[in-house]
Design a protein around this nucleic acid. Structure first.
Lengths: 298, 298
DNA sequence: TGCCAATGATATCCAACGCATATTGACAAA
DNA sequence: TTTGTCAATATGCGTTGGATATCATTGGCA
């Protein structure tokens, strides 16, 4: 097929069975329409219409070709739709990095929401620690991050998308395990398990700040890089830890969660992206994600 | 989408990732190719390629659009295939009329063969007596007929596609029913059941000629318009009949078939079509059908 | 560091294509 | 026979898409 335009002419004439009316619908005059149909007929090698000055009908071949032409025009429309969606950032592939602790509540909820709002966007998911997300964003390996803490002074844009209270995870053997709630100051002499200060400096710093506000030192005796590891160690009786409450879905034997009474004992999940140089797609997805704003359906 | 040509350019450049080579493959020079890509990029509203003077890569959006473009080009190719098939008579819808006695052997075999040779042709089948087929052909109601006898002097083209011997169908009560074979002259005084001479004059005439060659009168006492009716009457003891041997598949109780010894006691099925004014499709199907020539797989 | 080869973009020109207007030709109804 | 309708033909023109020539950028290499 040489020209989609001619095909539109064919379909329109086939629909109207009248050159004059078809030309009108196509916003053109009748003679060139007749010409273009003739051109198409020589292209395919047979007559598409039987026409007298009184009536126009499709030939058998024209009838057989009509649905094929329709299909082609539909496909052309689909192409335009796709191009338009891509232009407005409503379609494409976007790479998302997220902390493993978001995998159980925040990420599933957000993803369900995004898939609904941006059905033509494909998401490529990777779990990364908060600090690795920053690196991956800056190097272009991911487009969006869901991090718990980001270091200050980057060129990244960030906004809180979900906030939750911290709870204290401790062994069922521990004397505090029967309490309804504990305060951070009560943890002064406890053995804490926390994030690796080399691999996750930002998260470590956030906890340190929480303790410093109470003139306490945050100095975990054991360090890990994932919440699941930390919880495993707690269950094994190696110490206690402050973790976001969404981690409560983990209930290994020997482990108990106790509320933390301090108002500021919270952890936020930030939506992070390159502020400059963000593609329309990224911008569009960030916009869709921020309208979600941590709503918690369950 | 405005132009399929531009889309071909896009796909080719995306395949080669090199404007010079792509232009070569497209049998054109490089500058207009660059131009057309630029035109396409303004049409869709975003860049399709990231290009330096050293290397060309698809943008994310270009990558997302590529499969859609491929689909569109595939559909275009399908359209061309269809047009070409229609032009050469390899596709379309063709209306076939056939005598009911061909429904049991000739028509199924022929149809199986045709579907294989012309997979894109749709067949619309109607049973019609030989003489009605002639009328339907001339009025354009059918395109091809499978008839046992056609009147002389029409503008129709006809060729034998299947020839079979006649057998004598008679009641098991009849004295000849135990014979291995009978000759036509032996039927001189028998009560015959034959075709209606008004509704099927050609078929009647053919039988009459067979008898006349032996100085016999063909004068059936009972007339019908379908072989199945005739056989039913024979089984009911109303008389005997000469029928094509393919009717032997009908074995109602009380009916027996006996060979006819006369060499010329045959019936042919003719492939009939309008000789002038035949569409390429009809011509093509006639050609395919005549190559089959009554081969009898079983 | 500076030159060269490779490669895509730009400039300019021209032929072909597709559209418009005006007119003709065919055909059916009054 | 006339008239009205409708598609086809004739002619002219602006736009598009192609070619050739040239420029600009960049990475490799001496």
């Amino acid at each position: 097929m040489k020209s989609l335009q001619r095909l539109r002419y064919f379909v329109t004439v086939a629909d109207e069975l009248h050159f004059g009316r078809a030309a009108e619908r196509l916003h053109m005059s009748q003679p060139p329409l007749s010409q273009q149909i003739q051109v198409l007929e020589t292209e395919v090698g047979f007559a598409l219409f039987d026409r007298s000055s009184r009536r126009v009908v499709l030939t058998d071949e024209g009838q057989a070709l009509y649905p094929e032409a329709k299909r082609l025009l539909n496909q052309s429309h689909a192409f335009d739709q796709m191009a338009s969606a891509l232009e407005r950032g409503l379609a494409g592939r976007i790479r998302v990095g997220f902390v493993d602790s978001a995998a159980y509540r925040v990420m599933p909820n957000l993803l369900r929401n995004l898939r609904q709002q941006r059905p033509r966007v494909e998401f490529e998911l990777t779990t990364l620690t908060s600090d690795l997300q920053v690196k991956a964003l800056l190097s272009g390996e991911i487009d969006i991050g869901l991090a718990r803490a980001i270091p200050p002074g980057t060129t990244l844009s960030a906004q809180s998308i979900h906030e939750e209270t911290l709870v204290c995870a401790l062994s069922t053997d521990h004397e505090l395990s029967t309490r309804d709630a504990v305060s951070i100051t009560e943890l002064r002499d406890e053995l804490l398990i926390g994030f690796n200060r080399m691999k996750s400096p930002s998260l470590h710093a956030e906890m340190a700040a929480l303790f410093a506000a109470r003139d306490l030192q945050y100095d975990p005796g054991i360090e890990a890089t994932e919440y699941t590891t930390i919880l495993g160690l707690v269950a094994a009786g190696q110490g206690m830890a402050l973790v976001p409450e969404s981690l409560r879905v983990f209930r290994p034997p020997g482990l108990r969660y106790v509320d933390v009474s301090d108002e500021d004992a919270t952890s936020r999940i930030m939506l992070v992206a390159r502020s400059l140089e963000a593609s329309p797609l990224t911008r569009s997805v960030v916009e869709a994600a921020s309208s979600y704003l941590g709503g918690n359906p369950e």
